[in-house]
Design a protein around this nucleic acid. Structure first.
Lengths: 213, 213
DNA sequence: TAGATTGTTAATCGATTAACAATC
DNA sequence: TAGATTGTTAATCGATTAACAATC
């Protein structure tokens, strides 16, 4: 209603729920289902039907009155909203167990992310391939990032190495870092850091366990 | 103020922020610092000082007027709140890359979790040890769970195996499952499932990237 | 002392939930 | 038709934020 073009800020919570819906929708689509109601989606997720209805409405998922949301159209709406219909090229630094797990997870291609290179310093890892992705030595970071024009980093290095690598990445003009190391990274204001903190999940579990007793 | 003993429900958000504070507090403690203000903690985390003040107050972290929160006492308050001062014994199912990453992460001992056994079906993995933790065959789940009286499972199996294993675990009387497989698990109401969904983090990153453009 | 801080209550904001109309 | 569902607006709830007193 404002004359000014207000940036429609969609809540973080909504955004984080979208992948759940997407998984169910993929399944339904594979079974040939054309429509799904918010109540049915609610059964397949932990999310209350009204929340689902609102979330799908905010990403403009198409629907049919009385019949539910269109499966295919909702998939497209969510993918489009998240930008998951065209792949972002990314690279991974730190090809240890966690890094290898992420490299091995082909599902990212459904999630808008294509990891095209990996880096490590460990001589036994450099030169190998995981899931078709070559592991370069970290010394080559700068040249390969600029050569392949990469903007998104997945950081799975030990805590002790995280800030140092980050400084290098920032120097390479990286736009976003998906950080799995449990440290706060210092970056310039225009670099996005998405922090993944599994201790948070564990804390939640422990709190629920205590409350349950 | 109520005569009834109302269960003080602490918000999930607060619980999930606690580990961040804990990491900073451990560092400060290692440097011999006795007090820290919420403003200083705010600089070391992404969290606004008022939120930190409130969070620490809700876990009854001790403080000194005008001087800040007591470092050691705050550590104890958080650990105590989360039950991280005495270790919960847990086991892991699925010793692939992700499982191996979690087994290799000794930091869980600071987080109230001690993984004492791992399980897999892969012949090349069964019988090995990772970080001193033995990998048993999944066929031994039942006997070892009851022998060691384990109540908490960490689930890092492929999606296709997750529900089947879960049914077995429920049959063994497990109390909680920390689930890294991107599926909703069907469990009885008295079993806690803590869902870890890295697609949620990726979705958040993508939304922020889009908003940033 | 002045000023930085915690302590505590109130105000704001935004997400969730409820309510009900519209639809097929 | 009746009933299940989406569409849309209002109400509720709870987390965050602000405000200011108390303290050393």
């Amino acid at each position: 209603m404002s004359l000014f073009h207000k940036k429609t800020a969609i809540s973080v919570q909504t955004v984080r729920r979208l992948p759940q819906y997407l998984r169910v929708l993929y399944n339904l689509h594979a079974y040939g289902r054309l429509l799904v109601s918010s109540t049915e989606l609610a059964e397949e997720t932990q999310v209350p039907p009204i929340v689902i209805k609102k979330d799908l409405q905010t990403v403009h998922a198409p629907s049919k009155m009385r019949a539910g949301f269109k499966v295919q159209g909702s998939i497209e709406a969510i993918e489009n909203f998240l930008g998951w219909n065209n792949l972002n090229k990314a690279f991974l630094v730190g090809a240890g167990h966690l890094g290898a797990a992420l490299l091995g997870f082909s599902g990212f291609k459904n999630h808008g992310l294509e990891i095209v290179a990996a880096f490590d310093t460990h001589p036994q890892r450099v030169g190998n391939e995981i899931n078709g992705i070559h592991i370069y030595h970290t010394a080559q970071l700068k040249s390969i990032i600029s050569e392949k024009k990469l903007k998104i980093a997945v950081l799975t290095v030990p805590v002790s190495a995280a800030q140092g690598i980050t400084d290098t990445l920032v120097g390479c003009g990286i736009k976003a870092i998906w950080n799995f190391a449990p440290v706060k990274l210092n970056v310039p204001a225009d670099v996005i850091v998405q922090q993944e903190d599994i201790a948070a999940g564990l804390a939640e579990l422990c709190a629920r366990l205590k409350a349950h007793e």
